[in-house]
């Protein structure tokens, strides 16, 4: 038993050293390069800055680049994330409620469609064609609807599993007390979903905020760029200014780090629950 205990400590220490090299060093590299001078960052070295720290200078330069493009991008990404996540949570919960509580001959078909949404890669150009027909192409609200369309299946799955655990008697009691379907859903069921909603909001916010492919296709143009697109575009523009490029990466990584420090458990639980149910 003693030998086993020692083995666990030793393997833990070895693991800490190895994971430090593999997983922590890249982030330290990002942070170090972000505060270096332009010339020094260009050497791509993993070292403390020798020419001094340029945190504020680099930060201001990145923010001011291309007429405050990053600020606009953050605004766009925030609007996109908040609106699409709010929409898919509400619409998703409503669908999940119907699927779980009102079995009909459509239930099977709807379930199949939901599953298809998790598996099928979206058809890009036909989607653009539809969006153009509706005047949604190259608009932020168009992209919001796209994120909802591609993300709602996952929400439905998580909500449905959770609603299954809410006793039916609760619905019945509410109906006997005279609640219509709208009041039943929004005043009885929806508040009970609070914890799973919280999980879904965090997970989908991370997905939407980090999404690159959909903004690239459906919201082209510098004026509308989201954070991820801005980063991608800066890659060619800052080819000789790695300090600014990595400052940009640092800026978009920090929100995730903060989120992770606060909601570590929730995020991990949500991701496993979502994965297993999918």
């Amino acid at each position: 038993m003693r030998a086993q205990r020692i083995l666990k400590v030793v393997s833990g220490v070895v693991g800490i050293v190895v994971t430090f090299g593999l997983f922590v060093v890249p982030f330290i590299f990002i942070a170090l390069t972000a505060v270096k001078s332009r010339a020094e960052a260009g050497l791509l070295e993993f070292s403390l800055p020798r020419e001094g720290y340029f945190f504020m200078e680099n930060l201001t330069q990145v923010i001011e680049a291309r007429e405050f493009m990053l600020v606009r991008a953050f605004w766009n990404s925030t609007v996109l994330t908040a609106a699409s996540v709010a929409l898919m949570v509400i619409a998703g919960a409503m669908i999940a409620f119907v699927l779980q509580r009102r079995k009909s001959r459509w239930t099977g078909l709807i379930n199949a469609l939901v599953l298809a949404g998790l598996i099928i890669p979206p058809a890009v150009v036909p989607t653009i064609w539809v969006m153009q027909g509706l005047g949604l192409f190259k608009t932020l609200h168009g992209l919001i609807f796209i994120e909802v369309a591609f993300g709602i299946a996952f929400c439905i799955l998580l909500f449905r599993a959770f609603i299954a655990t809410i006793p039916r008697e609760l619905d019945e009691a509410a109906v006997i007390d005279g609640a219509g379907p709208i009041r039943l859903f929004f005043q009885v069921i929806f508040p009970l979903l609070r914890s799973v909603i919280f999980t879904v909001v965090i997970l989908q916010s991370i997905f939407v905020f980090n999404d690159f492919q959909n903004p690239l296709y459906f919201l082209p143009g510098d004026q509308n760029a989201t954070v991820q697109l801005t980063l991608f575009n800066f890659q060619s523009q800052f080819l000789t200014a790695f300090n600014l490029l990595f400052m940009n990466i640092l800026i978009i990584t920090i929100p995730m780090l903060v989120l992770f420090l606060f909601f570590n458990k929730r995020i991990v639980e949500g991701m496993t629950a979502g994965a297993v149910k999918g």
């Binding site: 509400i90 619409a91 989607t127 969006m131």
Partner: peptide
Amino acid sequence: WFLIPGAVIYLVLFIFPT
């Protein structure tokens, strides 16, 4: 009709293009 908001977006922007 609870299905409608989600279903419209999903059908128009995902299933139909597919």
